[in-house]
Design a protein around this nucleic acid. Structure first.
Length: 646
DNA sequence: AACCAAAAGTTTTTT
DNA sequence: ACTTTTGGTT
């Protein structure tokens, strides 16, 4: 490496980081505590590999979100040069999609498959239950949402149906056989219609690597250096994929922190991190324990917090930073006084010159922030909200996407039924008849356009044919297609939703995104794999990064980020930890890690908010105690104050 | 067969 | 508060 750059790296990295960055070939495990410069280490290492002559496209960087990958490559480019943008990066799911698109045929799967999201999967399962299970069901039978949950857990935890039922749904054990039947039918249905759900992407990538040595070798020859971020949140399938990708070269670096594992509900297992050295026997272990983020009093609290975990691998973060502001627990009377306290504090911080974008309010669940959102809007404070409400899953967006989806995949039953049901006097039966005709014809979209049956020649159906015929035109851009669809769909929208003005704006936003794409396929893939998840002051928008917005976020979506001041909403026992998680130690530990992730986001000031006296209607309990995780912390670590007590 | 209204059951986090 | 299921009417 060029000496000047090497010197620069030496001054900008600490000893442990430097060691990791300059680690050569072979397996490397980096245990990186919160705020210890994990991202920095990854970007510097990527830049270093490129600088030393490794072709950027031979480096694979797997991260938790595509945004994280993009930011890392951006930073690496600034460090070195634009070559770093050529590094292959993304999430496990998007990487799987890239590979499967090319090799799907090897798995006897059509190349032009469609990726379905969770609600789609639920609807498909719903069809199966309705059509194949006509016998009246004895006792409580799981709803389609629960069925989708169960099947997804099986895939993510790599466990048989019995085990999942035993552990989490013992009351459904009598239906074991039926559940198995439904799952088989679901698998068949996906194959017939060329559909893959999120879990299929990972599973099929693993199958491909495992059963096709020639393809595996081609891939391991292509990706000579692999780096995986947030390794504590990978599941069994992902760990096996990593193992196969490492092939014979074993140039695999994984980075993670067992204390920040917060996705076990999705099958993630932080033991993956601990098992890594036994998977790769000559693993080098580097630990990053110096925290550069948080002021001393915050670090003192977070260290005490994570000490309470029942199962843990001890480590204590240290810092050379001073700081005088102790974390505070603020008791307020009602939910609204909690919101008012935060609004007042934010105004005061703004007066001190802290930008809104350097302040965050974090919460356990999206709806916990509703009252605060009202209050912020009233005060005219603009904010961005991450997590919670899923824009892509709202009915009008899914409607719009359905029209685009049948252009890519004319046998997509879900989308056909969805758009046919919007036509007057067409219900489930007629929709099915029309769809069956399309499948029988095997002529793609023409099967519908040229259907001359009585049903298909009704004036209302004819209007749909007309618009589909117009947009089925290779010379039209995706944006142009979208405009035609919107013109057709808007009257339907007005008839079906009384809040159509808001929804119309959403659709126009979607159209604006669509216009930035060259191909419909990649638009649809992106909308499923990495959907826009933010809302700007209540209305969805392409986030103007330049603007100075306050950040509201679920703890899960706040992963990896940091702010000057952090407020944690509802640090109330029963909310955080959630009442549902207080039954067993494993779940309780995860809630604790979640609280740990939330509090380690703060650099200078940390507030826990605790409104008293909330009635929880699900359990019938009155919640009034602060979070059990905070209860035993001494006053020197956590100051208790009364906020607004009305 | 489609449509509509009333009733019942659920309630986190996300690719 | 919200979605999904149900039963009854057109």
């Amino acid at each position: 490496m060029e000496q000047a750059l090497r010197d620069r790296f030496r001054t900008e990295l600490n000893a442990a980081q430097f060691e990791a960055v300059f680690h050569d070939d072979g397996p490397l495990l980096v245990i990186a505590g919160a705020g210890s410069g994990k991202t920095r280490t990854l970007t510097y290492r990527a830049a270093r590999l490129v600088e030393e002559g490794h072709p950027p496209e031979s480096i694979l960087l797997l991260t938790f979100t595509r945004k994280a990958a993009g930011e890392m490559l951006q930073r690496a480019s600034q460090l070195l040069d634009a070559r770093c943008h050529q590094i292959a990066g993304g999430t496990f799911h998007s990487f799987a999609n890239t590979i499967l698109k090319r090799y799907a045929a090897a798995l006897n799967f059509p190349n032009g498959y469609t990726i379905i999201d969770r609600p789609d999967a639920e609807s498909l399962i719903g069809y199966i239950v309705k059509e194949n299970m006509d016998a009246p069901k004895l006792g409580a039978f799981p709803r389609k949402k629960t069925l989708a949950d169960i099947y997804s857990k099986m895939a993510n935890k790599d466990a048989p149906l019995e085990d999942i039922l035993d552990m989490e749904y013992p009351h459904f054990l009598p239906h074991l056989d039926a559940l198995r039947e439904i799952q088989d039918a679901y698998t068949d249905m996906k194959k017939q219609q060329a559909l893959m759900d999120y879990d299929d992407l990972l599973n099929n990538l693993w199958l491909l690597l495992d059963q096709h040595p020639a393809i595996r070798e081609r891939l391991t020859a292509r990706y000579r250096h692999i780096m995986v971020d947030e390794y504590q949140d990978t599941n069994r399938v992902q760990a096996r994929i990593v193992q196969l990708l490492a092939g014979n070269h074993h140039n695999i670096m994984v980075v993670g922190d067992d204390s920040q594992s917060i996705y076990s509900f999705r099958g993630a297992d932080f033991r993956n991190i601990m098992d890594f050295p036994s998977l790769f026997p000559d693993t080098r272990l580097i630990t990053l324990e110096e925290n550069y983020r948080s002021a001393e009093p915050i670090l003192a609290l977070t260290n005490r917090l994570i000490d309470q975990a029942i199962e843990k691998y001890p480590k204590t973060l240290f810092s050379n930073r001073g700081g005088s502001n102790s974390p505070q627990l603020i008791h307020t009377g009602s939910e609204n006084s909690q919101s008012r306290f935060i609004v007042d504090k934010i105004m005061a911080l703004a007066d001190q010159g802290i930008p809104f974008s350097d302040i965050a309010v974090l919460f356990r669940a999206g709806f916990h922030a509703f009252d605060l959102e009202v209050e912020l809007t009233r005060e005219g404070i603009s904010y961005v909200k991450y997590g919670g409400f899923k824009f892509m899953e709202s009915a009008h967006i899914k409607d719009m996407l359905a029209y685009l989806r049948i252009l890519c995949n004319p046998y997509d039953r879900l989308s056909w039924v969805r758009i046919l049901l919007q036509i007057n006097k067409i219900g489930p039966k007629s929709a099915q008849t029309l769809y069956d005709h399309i499948c029988r014809q095997k002529q793609g979209l023409r099967g519908f356009l040229e259907d001359q049956s009585k049903l298909a020649t009704k004036p209302d159906v004819q209007r749909l044919k007309d618009v589909l015929a117009t947009i089925d035109d290779a010379t039209l851009s995706p944006g142009g297609q979208g405009e035609h669809i919107l013109a057709y769909y808007l009257p339907i929208l007005k008839q079906r939703f009384d809040d159509y003005p808001k929804r119309t704006r959403d659709l126009e936003q979607l159209l604006a995104i669509l216009e930035t794409y060259e191909s419909l396929e990649s638009f649809l893939e992106d909308m499923t794999l990495e959907p826009p998840t933010t809302t700007v002051s209540g209305a969805f928008g392409t986030v103007g990064d330049r603007e100075d917005h306050l950040v509201l976020s679920t703890v899960h979506s706040a992963k990896g980020l940091e702010w000057h001041t952090v407020f944690i909403l509802w640090a109330l026992d029963g909310r955080f930890p959630s009442l549902m998680a207080t039954e067993n130690d494993g779940q309780l530990d995860e809630e604790l890690r979640l609280m740990y992730v939330a509090s380690t986001r703060a650099r200078e000031q940390l507030y826990f908010m605790c409104p008293g006296q909330v009635y929880d209607r699900m359990s019938g309990m009155l919640l009034s105690q602060p979070s059990r995780f905070l209860a035993d912390l001494p006053e020197g670590i956590l100051e208790r104050h009364a906020g607004n007590l009305w």
